[in-house]
């Protein structure tokens, strides 16, 4: 039930580089030669210290930035600008402050003129994020975690084929976070969407992903890709996880960034 039934959700990132401030004296190489193929229906996590270009990569796939070099494709078609097929959950909730919780969740359907047909689904997503009774609240009346959940519901309600999530559970308490992770898994399974998730939480990456992409900064590049073979549904205290955790930390350590490493422990 996505916008375009012919979108299957294969993302190809081919040798992409992104340089900000392209005058020679103070350019930032946010990404250098990033190459990554994401299969339809795959769930891939991006982890790495801040500044390694995770958000930039997501914005490139969303079509909000253009690559300095290389190309980005969705189902072999070049990505040109944003499209509702590629939904993005921003790092900040960025809710529309003039709309209520309900209005925010419905905003995608309204923008696409689907609201008249699908207005009944809005309430479902509000229920999913556990904010029944808050439909008429405005964003300034919500806590950070509630706002973040509304932002998730806003993207989910739009039913994109590709879901790009930038640290979506960062502002949530531990219990809500686990809840929302399971909701994400549920939606991901039901709709067979492709998901690209940025996270600071290694356990979250291991619990959710098919593959974990470890990135390192200056310049931002892919250091290693780790496959999580554990079958689903996964137990959060799975034995394999400890193994993977050590391996990821070692990879980040291999990048000689002990100060950033302490962040994860």
């Amino acid at each position: 039930m996505t916008g375009d039934a012919n979108v299957s959700g294969k993302i190809s990132i081919r040798n992409v580089s992104k340089i900000f401030n392209e005058n020679k004296d103070n350019e930032v190489v946010a990404l250098k030669n990033v190459h990554l193929d994401i299969e339809p229906g795959e769930l891939v996590s991006l982890v790495g210290p801040s500044g390694c270009g995770k958000s930039t990569l997501l914005r490139l796939v969303a079509g909000l930035e253009t690559a300095t070099d290389g190309e980005l494709l969705l189902d072999e078609t070049p990505i040109q600008g944003p499209h509702y097929d590629r939904g993005l959950v921003f790092q900040d909730p960025s809710l529309f402050p003039w709309l209520t919780v309900y209005g925010n969740v419905a905003s995608g359907l309204k923008a696409r003129k689907l609201y008249d047909k699908k207005s009944n689904t809005v309430e479902e997503y509000i229920k999913m994020i556990g904010l029944e009774g808050f439909e008429k609240s405005y964003p300034h009346q919500l806590s950070g975690g509630m706002a973040q959940r509304v932002s998730l519901a806003r993207s989910f309600a739009n039913q994109p084929k590709v879901l790009l999530l930038d640290e979506p559970f960062g502002a949530l308490d531990a219990f809500t976070r686990m809840n929302m992770q399971d909701e994400l898994l549920k939606i991901w399974t039901e709709r067979e969407i492709t998901a690209l998730l940025v996270t600071h939480d290694i356990d979250e990456a291991i619990y959710l992903s098919d593959r974990i992409v470890i990135m390192t900064p200056r310049p931002g590049k892919i250091e290693e890709i780790i496959e999580v073979k554990t079958s689903r549904p996964r137990a959060r205290n799975n034995e394999d996880f400890l193994h993977l955790r050590v391996r990821i930390l070692e990879t980040l350590n291999f990048a000689k960034r002990a100060d950033d490493l302490s962040y994860y422990l």
């Binding site: 916008g3 969303a62 079509g63 909000l64 600008g81 944003p82 499209h83 509702y84 590629r86 939904g87 993005l88 921003f90 900040d92 960025s94 529309f96 905003s107 995608g108 309204k110 923008a111 696409r112 806003r154 993207s155 739009n158």
Partner: peptide
């Protein structure tokens, strides 16, 4: 600018 970016990723046209 984020409001415009959010709206565009949701599928908004310039009218919206």
């Amino acid at each position: 600018n984020t409001y415009f970016e959010v709206a565009r990723t949701l599928g908004a046209d310039s009218r919206y």
